[in-house]
């Protein structure tokens, strides 16, 4: 089928063709069985689309609108988008942090001899003597 004639056929339903275009289309329709079939299919499709029953919202729609207006109007608009974006950002960062934590724990456990919380988090073994100032530590010891 001639593509430019096919294009004219589609346009003819939605706009007025020039005299020359209309003549070309009429001639094409006379001569081409394929174009005539396409014309019929297109006409049928447009009829079916136009005859579709109008859908409607569930009952009580007007009351829901008024209720939303009383509640401030924008219950699920910009605020919802903001919280959604916030949640998505934190979720991404949280996932990355969790993966890094797992990697660090695996490395720590792998590079130490035992499996313990201390080795998992690479906490150095410290004594009270190392944490507290020596003078104060001795004072504490003397009190025992």
């Amino acid at each position: 089928m001639n593509e430019s004639l096919n294009e004219l056929l589609y346009r003819s339903f939605d706009t007025t063709l020039s005299d020359e275009e209309q003549q070309r289309l009429d001639e094409g329709l006379k001569q081409s069985e394929g174009l005539r079939q396409e014309y019929d299919r297109l006409k049928t499709m447009r009829r079916i689309m136009a005859e579709q029953p109008q859908p409607d919202f569930m009952p009580g729609f007007a009351d829901r609108v008024l209720q939303r207006l009383e509640d401030g109007g924008d219950a699920s608009g910009d605020a919802q988008l903001f919280f959604e974006a916030l949640w998505l950002s934190f979720r991404r960062m949280g996932t990355v942090a969790l993966l890094l934590l797992i990697a660090a724990i695996s490395y720590n456990i792998g590079s130490s001899d035992n499996v313990s919380l201390r080795s998992a988090f690479n906490i150095p073994e410290t004594t009270m003597e190392e944490i507290i100032e020596p003078d104060f530590y001795q004072e504490l010891e003397s009190l025992r």
């Binding site: 109008q54 859908p55 409607d56 919202f57 729609f61 007007a62 009351d63 609108v65 008024l66 207006l69």
Partner: peptide, 18 residues
């Protein structure tokens, strides 16, 4: 406003649901 909503909800529904 409620009266206007009831008058035009069908037209809005046709667009939105389609």
């Amino acid at each position: 406003f409620k009266e206007l909503v009831m008058r035009y909800q069908g037209q809005v529904a046709a667009t939105v649901i389609s």
